[in-house]
Nucleic acid binder design. Structure first.
Lengths: 116, 116
DNA sequence: CTACTTGTTCTACGACTACTAAAACAAACG
DNA sequence: CGTTTGTTTTAGTAGTCGTAGAACAAGTAG
């Protein structure tokens, strides 16, 4: 885990957010599991503590993580079954690729569909 | 068409990009059709010409539009059938909503799935 | 050919975001 | 108790977003 690309267009904190979300969605990160502390993760990734903390705070506001002083960041207990979603995602990816759609156009379509 | 929200978190040019992409995907904008000139659209939306032009340039680099001086912005001829994609998008949106996933997490999953 | 339209390029500015940095603080842990 | 860890504050640099004005080049239309 924790593959950060400083040269990416996406902000560093957003990359962390996406990775945690994917980990939780895929079951790699299980509810109750503890993530590295902000200082620890920042040191190992050669980032600033605030950058890591910002990602953690986004995920806390999102309901994905629970943050407490002295304990650190813990994955919240969501416990939803994502098999349907995973299959739908795979189907969409295949259809979009077949149609020659870009990733951006595809996510734009998804965002629009979910905003209704 | 052309509903811009200056208070949105998304940049103005990104909103324009998304709307053109959706228009092309849904068939509202057909290949060969001409979009308003950058100055014209900027005036009617009360934006700066550069903001509109930036959106047009993103779409040109994307292959969605063709830009030529004196003529303006024209929808490129892609002509792909999107019925499969539309159905897959609707299925995914339903599954994600059923699982209680946020729009962001869902698009993150889609992005990841298409990057493989 | 001429006049007009339209995209292209350049410089510049103010506002905001992203990231880093150092420090001090408060709550929970062992 | 001391340690760990998130929280908050202040500060600086770099980059993006949007606006603005101007000049330029390649097409279009008459």
């Amino acid at each position: 885990m924790w593959r950060i690309d400083p040269a990416s267009d996406d902000p560093l904190y957003a990359q962390l957010v996406a990775q945690v979300r994917l980990g939780v969605a895929h079951g790699t990160l299980r509810p109750g599991e503890r993530l590295p502390s902000a200082r620890e993760l920042a040191a190992s990734l050669e980032l600033n503590m605030h950058t890591v903390l910002r990602a953690y705070q986004v995920l806390r506001d999102d309901g994905t993580l629970e943050l407490r002083r002295g304990r650190g960041a813990v994955v919240a207990s969501t416990a939803t079954d994502l098999t349907d979603v995973e299959r739908a995602v795979a189907d969409l990816a295949a259809a979009a690729r077949r149609a020659g759609l870009s990733v951006q156009t595809t996510t734009t379509l998804v965002t629009e569909a979910m905003h209704r």
